[in-house]
Amino acid sequence: MELADIINPNNLVYEKPKLLTENTMHYCPGCSHGVVHKLLAEVIEDLDIQEKTIGVSPVGCSVFAYNYIEIDWQEAAHGRAPAVATGIARTNPDKVVFTYQGDGDLASIGTAEILHACNRGENIVVIFINNGIYGMTGGQMAPTTLLGQITATTPNGRDAGRNGYPLKITELIAQLPGTSYVTRQSVHTPATIRRCKKAITKAFQAAMDKKGTSFVEVVSTCNMNWKMTPVKANEWMVENMFPFYKPGDLKDSSKTDPESYTPIKN
């Protein structure tokens, strides 16, 4: 058998999504961001919406998300991506708009923007990368940091008395009538990656069907600032984060229409 018999289009089982650019990713090896980017590129390609999708990148390690997926992008200020996405989606109702945000961005500085965008039921997709830490600025405590977790600003572990409690913002968001599909995923094994892709696909479909906001949390690792190897980080995540941030769907009304209302006359 010749090499050409093996490397042959008929034998192709895997290729890089066409929408992923050739730019070298700046993420640390083992970081979850890269995997989620790949899934996003695949979903956008599968749904054939690359000509009408606008991505909104946050402030955080994924600030440069726009370098990696071949679509139009806007870079938002820290925490404001849901407001930026609202502005795009409201004035361009036939486009597909998503935000990509870290836990500091979404659950701390941008809490107001995310809650209100979800509460208004903006027809957007939110991809929420929860790595329990501020990756970009060097590993400080995030609102999602677990009790006892060591970070640059909680060197002896997060203490509830001093630092408050970890915030389950996804549970809060699932309460809002404006959201249609709210799920918590991860990307640490081939099986979870496949499941996460399904979830992202469903989220995009729901937003395109105008069912309200869809929200996909991805419980993630930041092996760099957790100061672990990628393998150890995955184990740590399963052991420590999953009991608190339980993977699975929190809400699925992606097939039902948003609630209507009767005006109250006075």
Binding site: I54, Q74, R80, A83, V84, R90, N92, K95, A112
Partner: peptide, 15 residues
């Protein structure tokens, strides 16, 4: 804060 960032998003789409 939200208002001006909504303006940002819409303006960046050419509106």
């Amino acid at each position: 804060i939200a208002s001006i960032h909504m303006v940002y998003g819409a303006a960046a789409s050419g509106k």
